[in-house]
Amino acid sequence: MIKAERIEKSYNGERVLKSVSLSIRDGEFVSVMGESGSGKSTLLQLLGGFLSPDAGRVLWDGQDVASFSERALAALRCERMGFVFQSYQLIPTLNVKDNLLLPTVLGGRLSEETKKYVEMLCEELEITPLMKKLPETLSGGQSQRVAIIRALAYRPSTVILDEPTGALDSRMEGKVMALLSRINKRDKTTVIAVTHSERVAAFADRIVRISDGEILREENEKANGAKGG
């Protein structure tokens, strides 16, 4: 379980998040929505341990991320959590294959099974022909798909995605969301995704709407869907 307790964050004196509390259960699919500059990405980075809150705390299975040692944080990033950055953050000197396998290698968990799994994901998201290419030669959509596969490669228990389909066409968006939905259901993987797209948000169990650094409301999408259905 991931829990944010009254977390706050400011940049240059400007409060981006104001006492936000949020609980995400294991195996839950949560979408975070809001306007640009509302604090979605900051919330995600705080949940992922990439930023430290100015106040409050982020708990992973009851443990405060701020208390994690350097080693524990590294283990979190390459064993338990997959993170897809808005700007993809692929390592420019490694080719696509090396980028995909990087967290697995760093976690010391590269196996035949993992490789087959990665190959399968690549097939599914049509990345296989690009394996030898360097990131700077990829288009935005291709980079985004590589970043998503890299986050899923070692089957983390939690995947956090910042605008995972922002650069994808509708066909590929559908494929990515189907994939995320499948791993969420089949592997009980927790998925937290920031998005502007209602279509993407519709795949979530719950939608958290943020405005001006505060949670405006939480919507149970499945319940809404059931009601609506």
């Binding site: 990439f50 350097e70 080693r71 590294a74 283990a75 979190l76 990033r77 390459c78 064993e79 993170f83 950055f85 953050q89 692929l90 390592i91 420019p92 000197t93 990087l102 967290p103 760093l106 976690g107 890299r150």
Partner: peptide, 14 residues
Amino acid sequence: ALSLYRLSGMSRGA
């Protein structure tokens, strides 16, 4: 570029 390794889970020592 090097900070991306940290984001990918590489420890500071590594």
